[in-house]
């Protein structure tokens, strides 16, 4: 018996060491083979995590920008990334992450090439990552249940506000309604579920997303205040990959001038993008 268990222990130890080695090996190989060295077509000179594919990291609970339809991501961002990738001669793929882990994961590298997650370009984030040129405008909003007496931000003093962790909505609520208790959720849809369940009194969130959520009448929610913040979303790119940033910006400009961007915009928002 004891002899037997010694062998089992030895085998387990070897297996553990082997796994550790495998992990180390894998991580170093992803780091060293990101893409396309040597004989590749002139178009795809940018480095991507998976050769030939532009992988986007995204918090896919943010309709109409990105949401999961079964196993596939769909939404405005998904279509724009697909068009951008096509322009770059790449395929595109979406991977789901929690919003507040997107920037650290992008910096750590090896998981995805860009962040496409309705992410507002702001100075704090720019310190950590680069952003493509803006691809859409956004604002903030306050949503409540239909039965709520809350009419505007001022009515939320001392109340509970649901937000998505790490978002500009969270920042706005923290700075503009300092007496309120902020309840951060992993994703926007959880914050709205908590609002429906009466766990929070309001949700402060990006206006286009809130508008899409409250459109579903079965939720029994309404937007009581639109907050003009003039935010703009951009695709996040690692500071270590300036070539990719340039390529994404170039492709974005091309799909905007070709009208493909307008088609995608119309598909998801029902109207043509307002010209400035």
């Amino acid at each position: 018996m004891s002899k037997h268990s010694k062998w089992i222990a030895l085998a387990l130890a070897v297996a553990m060491l082997g796994t550790a080695g495998l992990i180390a090996g894998c991580s170093s190989s992803t780091a060293s083979t990101p893409g396309t060295t040597g004989t590749t077509p002139a178009k795809a000179t940018v480095k991507t995590v998976t050769a030939g594919t532009l992988v986007a990291g995204s918090d896919t609970a943010f309709p109409p920008f990105e949401s999961m339809n079964g196993n596939t991501a769909e939404g405005f961002d998904v279509d724009v990334v697909a068009a951008v990738a096509k322009e770059m001669g790449l395929k595109s793929e979406f991977k789901s992450y929690k919003f507040d882990t997107l920037i650290p994961t992008l910096i750590a590298g090896g998981k995805f090439d860009i962040i496409a997650s309705g992410m507002t370009i702001n100075a704090d984030r720019k310190k950590q990552i680069d952003f493509s040129s803006p691809y859409i405008d956004s604002n903030q909003s306050i949503s409540v249940t239909n039965a709520s007496t809350v009419k505007a931000a001022a009515d939320l003093a001392g109340k509970k506000i649901g937000v998505q962790s790490g978002t500009t909505g969270q920042q706005w609520a923290k700075e503009n309604i300092p007496t309120a208790v902020l309840v951060p959720f992993d994703d926007t849809l959880s914050a709205f579920a908590a609002l429906q369940a009466g766990k929070v009194d309001a949700v402060v969130n990006d206006l286009p997303v809130s508008a899409a959520v409250v459109k579903d009448a079965t939720r029994g929610l309404k937007i009581v205040q639109e907050i003009p913040t003039g935010e703009q979303y951009g695709f996040g790119v690692s500071k270590a990959n300036p070539d990719l940033l340039k390529a994404v910006d170039g492709a974005l400009a091309k799909i905007k001038s070709s009208g493909e961007y307008d088609t995608i915009y119309k598909k998801w928002f029902g109207v043509a993008p307002s010209s400035k």
Partner: peptide, 22 residues
């Protein structure tokens, strides 16, 4: 922490999200 209770993990997550450091 996933349902908005401010226990240990929630506080840690918030700090990490605010600072971008784990």
């Amino acid at each position: 922490s996933a349902v908005g209770i401010f226990e240990l993990m929630m506080n840690a997550k918030n700090s990490a999200a605010n600072t971008g450091n784990v």
